[in-house]
Computed example of a mutant assay.
Amino acid sequence: MGASNRTTQVALGVSAFSFLLFVIAFATPYWLVTDGRLTEPRFTNLGLWEVCFSNFQDIHRFYDTRFNGCMWVFEEEYYIISDFLLPGFYIAVQLFATLCFVMCLLALPLTLLFLRTSRDDDRYVVLLLSVGTCQVFGSIFGFIAVVIFGAKGDSRDWMPGWQNNDMGWSFAFAVVGSVLLLPAGILYMVQARRERYKRLNEISNREISEYGDDYYQHQAPPAAAAVVPSAPSPSTSYFAPEPSRPRRPQPGRAPSAPPHGGIQTDI
Score class of each variant (00 low, 15 high):
M1V: 12
G2H: 01
G2S: 08
R6L: 12
Q9F: 11
V10W: 15
V10L: 13
V10A: 14
G13L: 10
S15H: 10
S15I: 05
F17P: 00
I24N: 07
A25V: 07
V33F: 00
V33P: 02
D35P: 10
T39A: 06
E40V: 05
L46N: 04
L46H: 02
G47D: 04
L48G: 01
W49F: 13
W49N: 00
W49V: 03
E50M: 01
F56Q: 05
F56H: 00
D58H: 09
D58F: 11
H60D: 06
Y63H: 15
R66Y: 09
F67E: 00
I80W: 03
I81T: 08
S82K: 14
F84M: 07
P87Q: 06
P87N: 07
G88M: 08
L95Q: 05
F96I: 03
L99R: 01
V102S: 06
L106P: 09
L106R: 08
P109Y: 13
L110T: 03
L112A: 13
L112P: 05
F114Y: 05
S118C: 01
R119H: 08
R119F: 06
D120Q: 05
D121T: 07
V125K: 08
V126P: 01
L127K: 04
L127M: 09
V136I: 12
I140W: 03
I144W: 01
I144L: 14
I144F: 04
G150W: 14
K152G: 05
K152I: 03
R156S: 11
D157M: 04
D157H: 12
M159E: 03
P160V: 00
W162K: 13
W162Q: 11
Q163M: 11
S170P: 03
F171K: 01
V175A: 10
V176D: 02
V179I: 11
L180K: 03
L181Q: 05
G185I: 07
I186D: 01
I186A: 10
Q191C: 10
A192C: 04
R194E: 12
E195V: 11
R196Q: 15
K198T: 00
K198C: 02
R199L: 03
L200R: 15
N201M: 11
N201S: 12
E202Y: 07
I208T: 09
S209L: 14
E210G: 09
Y211E: 09
G212D: 14
Y215E: 10
Y216D: 11
Y216F: 11
P222Y: 14
A224W: 00
A224L: 03
A225V: 12
P229M: 11
S230Y: 09
S233A: 14
P234I: 08
F239W: 12
P241H: 04
P243V: 08
R248K: 12
A257R: 15
A257I: 08
G262F: 10
G262Y: 07
T265M: 12
D266K: 10
